[in-house]
């Protein structure tokens, strides 16, 4: 589920890149504050993006200060200050990591050690944010049911994760949630699920793990899938991009939206093309 939300570097302003880095470090500290130091290992760009998006949509200003952290103990760097929203997002990150590892373990992967590593953080998140935990766990159960169902398709299989993202956005946005934000987050959740499934096509085909693309099309490998059903797969993502754009156009932002627009309108389509073409992941780190 993690690691696909990326920005499009050549079209990212330096101010936004600096903000993203500060928010990445801020989220790391927030995970430490809400779930303990061990849970910081689950930090992801995906959640950093969500943090940037939700701060903007809720009108929560990001305060940046020069601070130290254990990775940058000597030289201070700009880091977004910990706030209530980031702490809860840190807990959301920990809940997702823990469930992802549990899911992998159920699929026969050797993830027990890693799951236990996040166990304490998961328990802290559960205790501190019961409503968020209940929401995540309800959709995790629905996801499991959807993957066991006889009748499946990429649309159906992605629905629980997409609805989870929609409901999580409602949870964070409160009165600021709207039909447009629902559409935006549903599309985002659906994309996250489907891009992961498409990327894992060969692995799931070989190991027999659930994959909606394998179940629907059954091609021998991803390359063949794209050759035989590329138009169908393209249609699935293209309508999703339409939905993302539609949702985005109706959402109210309180601050500059260049960073989130870069990810949603450029980074996500580019990452989709990369996975569809079977190219290697692009390195995210840049020193400026």
């Amino acid at each position: 589920m993690f690691g696909y939300v990326r920005y499009d570097m050549p079209n990212l302003f330096i101010k936004d890149f600096s903000l993203y880095k500060a928010m990445y470090c801020g989220l790391c500290k927030s995970i430490g504050a809400s779930c303990g130091q061990m849970a910081r290992m689950g930090l992801s760009y995906d959640m950093t993006f969500l943090s940037a998006l939700l701060h903007n949509m809720t009108g929560t200003d990001v305060k940046i200060e020069r601070q130290n952290c254990f990775e940058h103990a000597i030289r201070k760097r700009p880091i977004a200050c910990v706030d209530g929203l980031t702490e809860e997002l840190g807990a959301f990150n920990t809940l997702l990591v823990y469930h992802k590892l549990s899911d992998d373990e159920r699929d026969g992967e050797k993830k027990r050690g890693r799951r236990l590593w996040f166990g304490r953080g998961y328990r802290r998140a559960k205790k501190r944010y019961p409503a968020l935990t209940a929401l995540v766990e309800e959709f995790m159960r629905e996801q499991e049911r959807a993957e066991r169902a006889e009748e499946t398709s990429p649309d159906r299989a992605a629905d629980p994760t997409a609805r989870m993202m929609r409901d999580v956005s409602r949870h964070f946005l409160g009165e600021k949630a709207s039909e447009s934000s629902d559409e935006l987050f549903y599309a985002l959740g659906k994309w996250v699920y489907l891009i992961d499934a498409l990327d894992d096509y060969d692995k799931d085909k070989k190991k027999g793990g659930f994959n909606p693309f394998v179940r629907t099309y059954g091609s021998a490998d991803k390359k063949t899938l794209m050759k035989e059903h590329g138009d169908d797969v393209g249609f699935l993502f293209d309508t999703l991009f339409y939905s993302l754009r539609e949702g985005l156009s109706g959402v109210k932002f309180f601050f500059n939206r260049d960073l989130t627009d870069n990810v949603l309108l450029r980074g996500i389509p580019l990452e989709t093309m990369r996975v569809m073409n079977g190219d290697a992941p692009v390195k995210m780190s840049v020193r400026i």
Partner: peptide, 8 residues
């Protein structure tokens, strides 16, 4: 879908 394809 054509509109979305432009993004990709």
């Amino acid at each position: 879908a054509r509109e979305g394809r432009k993004a990709r």
